[in-house]
């Protein structure tokens, strides 16, 4: 039977070793299956966070051969036979154990976002074309792969100034909602730090839900921020029209 050659990080709190494991390959197998095989047959203490195993919950984020992805979606048959498959925890968030990282920062950020605020007295007649954009953002499964790959958080560690792509998506979903009445543009510019994003699109590349994070969420937010803060000519015309 064909065997896969896995090299998995084992250890706690940023310190450990890469251990090699030979795992028999079954048809249609994904890397998460291989980790489960290790868990059930070699070492029950190997830690991996997972839930649905169907790319719907976004729990099993890790890095396979350096690429951030969901372990449940990483098919084993895309590797060369005998290729060493390196599996690491995600880098951007504090390491807990083996493949598990502490992503609680994201939950703290989420709390800062002004929640959905419907226009008072709205009749809730809302057409499909008005919410289709928002529906794309609602596909987010909060795997935080985009947060992990974003260099602002990953390499520059600017968690103090930038909410990260996941929350740009959330903010875009709220700002573009046809019934929402809150204005979050100052937050988008200041606290959320949309200006830190240099639109290098890695978030879009790793998104397992194929959300066009950069093109459909971040750039439109940047443009809305321009409307509000960087476009004096349009502002001038708007104020003239309003004055009339």
């Amino acid at each position: 039977m064909a065997e896969a050659n896995l090299k998995v990080f084992r250890g706690e709190k940023d310190s450990g070793t890469f251990e090699n494991y030979k795992v028999p390959i079954e048809e249609g197998m994904v890397v998460l299956d291989a980790i489960h095989y290790i868990q059930q047959n070699m070492d029950p203490t190997i830690a991996v966070r997972w839930n649905c195993k169907a790319a719907k919950c976004g729990s099993c984020s890790a890095e396979v051969n350096g690429k951030p992805q969901l372990l449940c979606k990483s098919r084993m048959d895309k590797f060369e036979p005998g290729e060493e498959i390196t599996v690491q925890p995600i880098k951007t968030f504090p390491h807990v154990k083996d493949l598990v990282a502490d992503v609680s920062w994201n939950y703290e950020v989420n709390k800062k976002i002004v929640p959905f605020t419907p226009q008072p007295g709205h009749n809730w007649v809302v057409y499909q074309e008005d919410i289709e954009r928002v529906q794309e953002f609602r596909k987010c499964i909060e795997c935080f792969l985009c947060q992990n790959v974003c260099h602002v958080l990953r390499d520059h560690n600017r968690k103090d100034g930038f909410y990260g792509p996941r929350f740009m998506v959330r903010l875009a979903g709220l700002e573009m909602h046809p019934v929402d009445s809150a204005n979050r543009l100052k937050m988008v510019k200041e606290d959320a730090g949309v200006g830190f994003c240099n639109i290098t699109k890695c978030c879009t590349e790793v998104c397992p839900e194929d959300i066009h994070i950069t093109d459909n969420a971040i750039i439109p937010l940047k443009e809305r921020v321009v409307d509000e803060f960087y476009d004096p000519i349009a502002k001038f015309f708007k104020s003239v029209f309003k004055a009339k």
């Binding site: 690429k67 790959v149 730090g193 830190f196 994003c197």
Partner: peptide
């Protein structure tokens, strides 16, 4: 993606 940036200090992006 997933490759370390060059230089690490004083990144301000488009701010």
């Amino acid at each position: 993606c997933g490759v370390k940036v060059y230089g690490n200090n004083g990144y301000t992006g488009e701010r």
